[in-house]
Amino acid sequence: METQQTSKHSDAAKQPDPMLVRPLQIHRIIKELGDTFSLILQPQDDDADFPFQPGQFNMLYVYGVGEVPISISGDPARRETLVHTTREVGTVTRAMRKLKVGDSLGVRGPYGKGWPVDKAENQDIVLLTGGIGLAPLRPMIHYLLTRREKYGRIVLLYGARTPEDILYRKDLEKWRSRFDLEMHLTVDHATGAWRGNVGVVTSLVSRSPFDPQNCIAMVCGPEIMMRFAVMELQKRGVADDRIYISMERNMKCGIGLCGHCQLGPTFVCKDGPVYCYVDIKDIFTKREM
């Protein structure tokens, strides 16, 4: 029998099938690091508009190979293209790297909850990230700099394994030359002519100039790094409801229907990937949750 509830949601039923992918053409490929590359996507027709919230992700499909969730890493103000930075770590991303300009990639999204852009207004902003974790934060940095007057101090703390592993070098140089963004870089292992910080990125928190009582911290990196980042921020006196982290889990659908990304009572695809730490502090530290 048809339930009342089913008919009530007939509007949603008129939506196109959310599992269908939209083929987009690879317009440009940027080799970022040895195993990391950015794909700039555009539609085959002229119907180009990709609104998204900084921190959201898309499901990217390589024809015949598979689909993976990848965060959007371009400037949210430039809605005519989609930018994704990917590291080659599995079957799909390996196949993705072999694609050429003019080839197509299937896209579904944008999905998930992004960084708290509104809550961050009038606050100091601490961006704490390591490795490729800078990719999901780059749209946020663009967003902040476009509306610079709405925010307090902006501090970017970024750690990479070696100086050669520093992502988005051109962007970082551009941002470093600004007087309204403070940036500290660190590497785990110094090589060559590196004269900057050496050590884990979380050690930069204690010396950074921001007001712990009036700040929003946005953290993105490996889980172990985020755990220590939270501890360092708490030591500075940042309250749990001012800390945001971006989580990663296995995803097959991206829309809360496949079950894979469950983290305790939440679905990373729709309740995350960006979480307010206060909402998941009880489950974040549990092993094999």
Binding site: T6, A12, A13, Q15, P18, M19, G256, L257
Partner: peptide, 16 residues
Amino acid sequence: HDKILSQGQYIDHSYQ
């Protein structure tokens, strides 16, 4: 299953 697959933000079309 009605609730999960056909009453959320995203709908499983084949189920519906």
